[in-house]
């Protein structure tokens, strides 16, 4: 994941200098994260990509007015959230709108089995542990673990307190831990015991 400061730097270059290279880099660094976030709200990958594209078009148009944005990454998440909720509003008129009504498929993340020794069985257990969590809890877990947002930033985005983020994240970790902690390979267990 790209260093947050680098992203801020790109954002400033876009706002202050209209720098197209910085703009492209910013898109490449954030498109996956924002598209997953939008897809969780809209339930459509295609729509999500369009929404994130619209957010970046808006960024280009208004760049001159955005140089005062304090946290560019959270700002782009908030824009994506608003555009996504608007899109849902247009498509399903009568549905109650909230961030609890999420397509959790788009949120799903797993340990990278190519890079570690986890068995498919353990990965499966992690997946179902995460799936058993409330949608909002899954969203928070993803935003912290995969997207690297801070508690404070997640709180700002979801309009909840950092304390709530802290509590929800601990619940996620506990669920995952309970599902896998007894599956530790024997040799690994041995190495810990001998420390």
């Amino acid at each position: 994941m790209m260093n947050e400061e680098v992203l801020h730097q790109y954002f400033r270059q876009v706002c202050d200098d209209g720098d197209q290279d910085a703009y492209n880099e910013l898109y490449k660094a954030l498109c996956s994260r924002l598209i997953h976030f939008s897809a969780a709200i809209t339930g459509s990958w295609q729509l999500a990509e369009e929404i994130v594209s619209d957010v970046f078009i808006m960024l280009w148009r208004k760049r001159a007015q955005l140089s005062n944005v304090a946290n560019p990454v959270v700002y782009l998440y908030v824009c994506t959230r608003n555009q996504s909720l608007n899109a849902v509003r247009q498509h399903r008129r009568h549905q109650h709108l909230s961030l609890d009504n999420l397509d959790t498929d788009a949120l799903a993340i797993l340990p990278d089995t190519e890079q570690n020794m986890l068995s498919a069985e353990v990965t499966q257990k992690i997946e179902s542990a995460i799936r058993s969590l409330p949608a909002r809890c899954q969203l928070i877990f993803r935003l912290v673990k995969q997207d690297g947002l801070k508690y404070r930033e997640v709180g700002e985005l979801l309009q909840i307190s950092p304390k709530t983020v802290d509590a929800q994240l601990a619940i996620s970790v506990k669920k995952i831990a309970e599902a896998i902690r007894l599956d530790m390979p024997a040799d690994l267990a041995q190495s810990y015991l001998l420390r």
């Binding site: 996956s32 788009a106 797993l110 990278d112 673990k145 995952i176 810990y192």
Partner: peptide, 20 residues
Amino acid sequence: HPDASYVKEVMMQPWKDKHK
């Protein structure tokens, strides 16, 4: 709690998107 150390290893690894 060595069992928790194992959980820590798993949680600190880089994860990846399941879809897309």
